[in-house]
Design a protein around this nucleic acid. Structure first.
Lengths: 183, 183
DNA sequence: CACAATAATGGCACTCAGGGTCAAAATGGA
DNA sequence: TCCATTTTGACCCTGAGTGCCATTATTGTG
């Protein structure tokens, strides 16, 4: 019996050994004891393997946003982003490995915008709903783009300091933006 | 004699006819009267073809930034971004086609982060220089990420309204961010 | 003008990602 | 146990991208 968890365990081991590019789908399939064709049914592409079940978390993200309906809009988004990036302590080590791979491998960096497009859409829809506008309008799009850019800046900082907290750097990124825009 | 301009003219015609994905490198090479191998020496990849000589514009961008050394930091970046996106009136139609292709084709959307990485780096280095910090520090990274996110939001708006000015929407995007963060 | 050095070209063969098709195998009721 | 429905993986194909190398410009020099 094969599972996503098992495949990812095997894949990450190979990525660590031979690098993402240096690992072929055949390598992963063989190491996982399944056919290459089957592997590509579990994941839409090689680039999607490191993302695991990311899409499944978006529903929860949507709910989290509505948790903050009573807060000012920008604050609601900010708090929800922080909440989205909260993981149990024992999962942080794995999350670091995963995100370091994604954010340092050019192929995966590129692919990430496609995965984050849905994430941004969740924010855009929330902002649109609260402002009575269309998700494609300038405010929802700007808010979601900026939310992503702050997350990226935060993650970069987080990955370069092993002893920082994700929630802390995301907070710092927002404060940094405030300082940058006002001074 | 083949030139980048000639190749791109041929390529964009084919992209318009058969779509980006539906056009093969063989199609382009054949239509341009060159070998596929040669085409891949002119452009690092199929994804790079729509970008033309983008990298060459970065030196000018760097200079433009220093034009605004006497302005507040965030203003200097903002003005330079607008200046970077100024094109002669007769070039705007082509620029629209180019950017619409890039921003609506998933493969090219993904690839764009790799191309924009160098653009962001120019901003990060400028901000680092003016604040006496490292380009990889949080402020330079945040500033460059946000500058890109505002540009993306602006371009989205620009592409959806044929009669808007690029400089206008970029201005609007920044004002929208201010409004979003303060209200 | 001729000739040598250097650069550009494109043909060939190869690896790898990804997708379509289909028969075999596993699964899960009735 | 038998039938129906997924799941699997083997096979084959296309297309991007790379290394290698012989051929063909191009350019500089006498």
């Amino acid at each position: 019996m094969t599972s996503h968890a098992e495949i990812e365990r095997v894949a990450f081991r190979l990525f660590a050994e031979k690098g993402f590019v240096g690992t072929t789908l055949d390598d992963i399939a063989q190491a996982a004891g399944i056919g290459r064709r089957t592997l590509l049914r579990y994941y839409r592409s090689k680039n999607d393997i490191p993302w695991g079940q990311f899409d499944d978390t978006l529903d929860e993200f949507r709910n989290t946003l509505h948790t903050f309906d009573d807060r000012p809009l920008h604050e609601a988004v900010h708090l929800a982003v922080i909440e989205f990036n909260r993981f149990p302590a024992e999962a942080m080590a794995e999350h670091r490995v995963r995100m370091r791979l994604i954010l340092t491998t050019p192929e995966l960096q590129a692919h990430s915008v496609l995965r984050y497009a849905d994430w941004r859409q969740v924010i855009a829809e929330y902002v649109a709903e609260r402002t009575g506008s269309d998700p494609s309008a300038l405010l929802p799009q700007t808010a979601s783009q900026v939310a992503l850019s702050l997350s990226m800046a935060g993650y970069g900082e987080w990955l370069s300091n092993d002893d920082t907290e994700l929630s802390t750097v995301l907070e710092q990124a927002l404060r940094t933006l405030h300082g940058y825009l006002e001074v």
